[in-house]
Write a protein that binds this DNA or RNA. Structure first.
Lengths: 149, 149
DNA sequence: CGCAATTTAATTGTGCACAACTGATTGGTG
DNA sequence: CACCAATCAGTTGTGCACAATTAAATTGCG
């Protein structure tokens, strides 16, 4: 029964450890391009959605400006994005992927197969895991998973 | 089919987001005691196992000395632990919980119910999630979940 | 219109994570 | 015994996360 009393702990630590382990799987594929995993997530949003505001990036990735501002500044320094303040509402800043930013998409390629194999889970299990994880965040959040997620 | 091509991405982001969301659930319960979530994990190991070496803490929590050394220094400053270098092998350092460190266990109490409810998942689903997460780390790792995990 | 509340991005400060390295200690092997 | 490789903790540097604050722009309401 102490299994059940420690259940939340175990879930939380498993999440914490699994998240870091998964990020570690990406690292060797991203580091050659000078990217971190959060930077890669930002680029995925830009690849998928095109130019995006910092506000929307924050809502998609669940990160605040305290995290995104310096991260985007680094991506800009690397030449992967540009930052343009909107003219009609000067509070918002638009993030545009540059040509080199777009080029990274093909340069990095599709990491799916390799990483799915690394987990050792079947596609069914991964789908199951995905559903449980999504449900575990926001209570009663019934909206389907978004891209690029 | 683009669902499946983005599957690893989605899983990885879900892990990343769910882990941070879960940590955020703990924060209001730990912050009054001046603890962070990683510090709380260390204390849970000490509450469960008693005095432990830094090496074993690192293996249990999957953290290296670069993370643990300053973290433990902060726990020592707060008076929750002591650091004692072993006499028979002066490379290893033993971490002992102090009385105030032990007292935190009852002061913080059991957060299980509250956090399980916050996820909105059933016990069965949490068990399922736990199993999948554990399997997703280490390929072919068939050892059962450890404490405190 | 005038002004307070809200929105947005940026900044500051703290604490992880993790790579790379240092330095001390230990164990094993010739 | 001498020496070399391995082990262990600590340090340094970079980049997230996140709370709290700041400042500018916008919105809404009287």
């Amino acid at each position: 029964m102490r299994e059940s009393t420690a259940l939340d702990q175990m879930i939380c630590f498993q999440l914490y450890a699994a998240s870091r382990a998964m990020t570690a799987l990406y690292r060797p594929h991203l580091e050659p391009h000078g990217l971190t995993y959060p930077q890669y997530l930002v680029l995925r949003v830009l690849w998928h959605d095109g130019p995006t505001t910092i506000r929307d990036l924050g809502r998609t990735l669940k990160l605040d400006s305290g995290t995104l501002s310096p991260l985007l500044k680094r991506l800009e320094t690397q030449g992967h994005i540009t930052r343009v303040r909107a003219t009609h509402d000067e509070r918002t800043v638009w993030i545009h992927p540059t040509d080199t930013g777009h080029a990274l998409q093909t340069a990095i390629g599709d990491l799916t197969q390799e990483l799915v194999c690394a987990t050792g889970l079947t596609v069914d299990e991964l789908t199951q895991l995905h559903t449980l994880l999504h449900r575990a965040r926001g209570t009663g959040n019934t909206t389907p998973p978004e891209e690029p997620v």
